[in-house]
């Protein structure tokens, strides 16, 4: 994922709330913990020296407890809040130095945002909520409604274009939120806990929806959540935040299998490892003359997903990458993986 030039690049980003934020960064105060600093100066470090890259088409999940600075980070990235220090690039563009006009342009075309509490405009119909960005960009009514109807279809809201937001259920409202973010065909989407306000069943639907949309449209996404299952389900990579700082970035498997510290370990310990462990890490080389099943699996298949096929077959399955057999998995590997990880 790091090979292509990144779509988003964040370097040493800080956000300090309070009366005198500049006195903190680059001084010895910066090394204080959040609560110490607040006690001493009244300032709050919401985002602390955060750096990461997001590749084109990647779904990058930011995770952390309430108050860990997730929203502030994503608001800094969309410049709803001005960061106190740091760099931010979308492609080659230095986002923090663009003027107000260019920033509006970026917001209208390059990236869009989905909010936890939907942020729909109650006085506008669904279709006019979705067409808002196009409207303020001067797109004619017919054209923008045509486009709005396209995305309405895309998110499965056919027939609700002329309803008002408060006539819809929460799940449907967030579909409107998604549609609105998609209407301008942005390259990047920021989603700040988009499903936290929904009940679990609807949430699962919506997660599937995001996976489908990502599959069809291939947008780069920065997705905020405090739900590990959601993070694992959607994220190519996950960043874990604590007190404003990122404590670990990695694939779901990295985090679960090799937590960087106690904090991350605590975070992921409830999570069934078979859901993140890939067969790449448990496969073995075939013995000579060993008989193999016809079925082949990709190396990034999780143990959980592989288990059924492996158990259903009497012979080990091949693990194939780029047409090459790179290993095999049999009953033993799967059992050992599940047994070894379920404690």
């Amino acid at each position: 994922m790091t090979s292509a030039s990144p779509m988003i690049s964040v370097k040493n980003l800080w956000k300090v709330f309070g009366s005198n934020p500049d006195q903190v960064i680059g001084t010895e105060l910066a090394s204080l913990t959040r609560s110490e600093l607040r006690a001493k100066t009244g300032n709050t470090v919401a985002v602390r020296d955060v750096s990461f890259d997001v590749a084109p088409g990647e779904v990058f999940v930011v995770m952390g407890l309430s108050g860990s600075g997730k929203s502030t980070l994503v608001r800094c990235m969309t410049r709803l809040i001005e960061p106190t220090a740091g760099e931010l690039h979308f492609g080659n563009e230095d986002v923090l130095s663009v003027d107000a006009k260019r920033l509006r342009e970026l917001r209208r075309t390059k990236f869009s945002m989905v909010f936890q509490h939907f942020g729909l405009l109650p006085h506008r119909k669904v279709i006019d909520n979705i067409a808002y960005s196009l409207e303020i960009n001067g797109v004619e009514k017919d054209a923008r409604h045509a486009r709005a109807n396209e995305v309405i279809e895309l998110v499965g809201l056919q027939g609700y274009g002329h309803a008002y937001p408060d006539q819809l259920s929460g799940g449907m409202q967030q579909r409107v939120g998604l549609a609105r973010a998609l209407a301008v065909d942005p390259e990047i989407m920021f989603l700040d806990e988009p499903f936290s306000a929904l009940d679990p069943l609807i949430r699962r639907d919506m997660q599937a929806e995001v996976i489908r949309l990502h599959h069809e449209l291939g947008k780069t996404m920065v997705f905020i959540t405090h739900d590990l299952a959601e993070a694992v389900k959607l994220g190519d990579r996950i960043a874990i935040m604590r007190d404003g700082a990122i404590v670990q970035i990695g694939t779901p498997e990295d985090l679960v299998m090799n937590p960087a510290n106690e904090y991350v370990a605590n975070f992921v310990k409830e999570h069934p490892k078979s859901h993140v462990l890939t067969i790449r890490s448990i496969m073995r080389t075939p013995g000579t003359g060993e008989e193999l099943s016809e079925i082949a699996l990709a190396p990034q298949t999780t143990v959980k997903d592989a288990a059924r096929s492996v158990v259903g077959s009497t012979r080990p399955l091949r693990v194939v990458e780029n047409g090459q057999v790179i290993g095999i998995v049999g009953h033993d590997e799967i059992l050992r993986a599940i047994a070894g990880t379920e404690d």
């Binding site: 945002m113 729909l120 405009l121 109650p122 808002y132 303020i136």
Partner: peptide, 9 residues
Amino acid sequence: SVEAGISMG
């Protein structure tokens, strides 16, 4: 609502 409006440019 205000934030949504700003975020859309």
